[in-house]
Design a protein around this nucleic acid. Sequence first.
DNA 1: AATGAATGAGCGTTCATTCAT
DNA 2: AATGAATGAACGCTCATTCAT
Lengths: 193, 193, 193, 193
Amino acid sequence: MKRDKPKYKQIVDAAVIVIAENGYHQAQVSKIAKEAGVADGTIYLYFKNKEDILISVFREKMAIFVENVEVILKKNVNTSEKLFEMIDNHFRVLHEDRHLAIVTQLELRQSNKELRMRINDVLKEYLVLLDAILKEGIKNGELDEQLDIRLARQMVFGTIDETITSWVMNDQKYDLMKLSPEVHRLIMNGMKA
Amino acid sequence: MKRDKPKYKQIVDAAVIVIAENGYHQAQVSKIAKEAGVADGTIYLYFKNKEDILISVFREKMAIFVENVEVILKKNVNTSEKLFEMIDNHFRVLHEDRHLAIVTQLELRQSNKELRMRINDVLKEYLVLLDAILKEGIKNGELDEQLDIRLARQMVFGTIDETITSWVMNDQKYDLMKLSPEVHRLIMNGMKA
Amino acid sequence: MKRDKPKYKQIVDAAVIVIAENGYHQAQVSKIAKEAGVADGTIYLYFKNKEDILISVFREKMAIFVENVEVILKKNVNTSEKLFEMIDNHFRVLHEDRHLAIVTQLELRQSNKELRMRINDVLKEYLVLLDAILKEGIKNGELDEQLDIRLARQMVFGTIDETITSWVMNDQKYDLMKLSPEVHRLIMNGMKA
Amino acid sequence: MKRDKPKYKQIVDAAVIVIAENGYHQAQVSKIAKEAGVADGTIYLYFKNKEDILISVFREKMAIFVENVEVILKKNVNTSEKLFEMIDNHFRVLHEDRHLAIVTQLELRQSNKELRMRINDVLKEYLVLLDAILKEGIKNGELDEQLDIRLARQMVFGTIDETITSWVMNDQKYDLMKLSPEVHRLIMNGMKA
DNA sequence: AATGAATGAGCGTTCATTCAT
DNA sequence: AATGAATGAACGCTCATTCAT
């Protein structure tokens, strides 16, 4: 499995840095190879094509979110607390890796429709976990039993995403982490029983 | 004033169609010219360059939203109703022009960072009106007086935007208009006093 | 005859100014029209095409040199003196019209081979007069009877031309007129009997 | 060092041929690539841009003149002889490469002012050597001690240049080499002590 | 496995010229 | 005679991908 070899990770990490520092359209394969310390051709031993690198970036980094949320899901706390931790985790991960924040919120969105569809497939895994939290909340009576899961998910994700994008566009100059409680409150108000 | 001449509108409309049908990266100037029924060079009598066409598309179309919301703002109804009408208007305009929906939700987001910053400037006008509704709601006691305007705005816009994008990505196969009441309810719950 | 109408001269003069100030490759027909105070299309009532304007510029301005040399030729002075006056006249005309100097020495030489061939035809008239002076000098014994007229003409014209071009390239910052005596002396030494 | 690789020379030589046969304005990069037997993109591995190819053509070919004159300068012969060899060498190199003659005398002069300035920088190296010969001649008493070096240089170079240009414009139909003695005589007469 | 030189398709923009008014 | 809006052909350069070593 290619993905286990050290160079695979090396190239993915290089891609994040190159995209964050140069922008999506200036992230040439040759630049990524240079940053990773390999030859251009070597890239193609680990990735089918450039698009494959970009999807891998998203998949590898998204995995962090998914793993964290899986842990949160298993915790013995109520739904409101789980949602708070999910929001807080989302904010924290991007707060701690400014390159990654730029890449996911601004740069990767410049990719073409097809790539974005593929990225959405990866995202779905995350949204499925969010749905699980919401369903649990409805079941245990914490959330409104009439709640339209899809819309609720779109509100939760849309609000988180828009909040982070605004923060990135403002050059990350205020403290994103401090916003978790208020974002959580706004969202919970909308959905609670 | 170039923008008043019929060919200006003709080219902007052609651009929407071409981008929607071919995607942002396959929307060559020559294709837009052909769709508009003019020569390639004619484009440059009305637009500085290709980027100028794309910003114009966004500005001209966004103006519809802004005008509608300006009317809504002046209506003699309460804040909750104004928010509903804003959401419903947003959904309706994109529901009635499927090409435009694809362009604003998917294609124009592929533009480079610089163009997207310019687009954001146009968007700001719309968000200012949203802020005005929120401020009015706080003043008249309908909305929570502790409400963080910026976060509230991000929730409202983020939820609307994510809802429409999901609808477009699902090939616009369900009725977007029917979602207005529930989206409105979710949002209002989060913000009301 | 189009050339007698005031607009003809107006356009030729505008062309000299536009070429001198913008350079050959930035001297668009529309710029010349604007400088001349006429519409783009009007140019084509007086000139066949752009090349025709440029040849006309050269022909009209070269006529000044030719007329002056024709006067010099008829003067009752010796060949050495005639050559001096020709050199001095050449220097003076370009010294007094800095735009024209830039156009003839630098800009018009960027034209394509065909246009330059046409320009050479115009130049020939001038060189014929120079040949006449040289022949007269050989006949009256002032110049070496073995003199190869063609080579002598190339030396005279080449030296004058190179001297003026150097002066223009050095931003016309020294006094060109002061060089006439020395240039005349160098040339005469080479040819005298 | 890119300039040492065989493809570098290959492309420069191809450029000379393409420019000579098609003219400066019809010498597209794709034509040069085809003539050189490489892909269009390969050109850009060896040259920054099209202008860089053209300057390189001039620099590489001018180097031949410079090297030859450097050898001549060191010879143990008098100044008059050195000047003769310089003229004769200049004529010979262009006589033996008719493509190069067309390119240097006619085509490269059509380049824009900026490129011509760059070309002049290369030319200066050659003129410095010419100045060295002239200074030596003044020092050893062969040339007039009052000689204005700059004017003398302009006469020597202007005469050589005009002679060759006339020859090229007349389709190189007479024997350029035969003119060296007479050109040398004319020039020396003008400068000798 | 790793290299990196070579490939070649693809497109925004300019501007001389025309022609309906 | 004069206008000026409209035309459309033409080209330098980039960069993802390949493949001989």
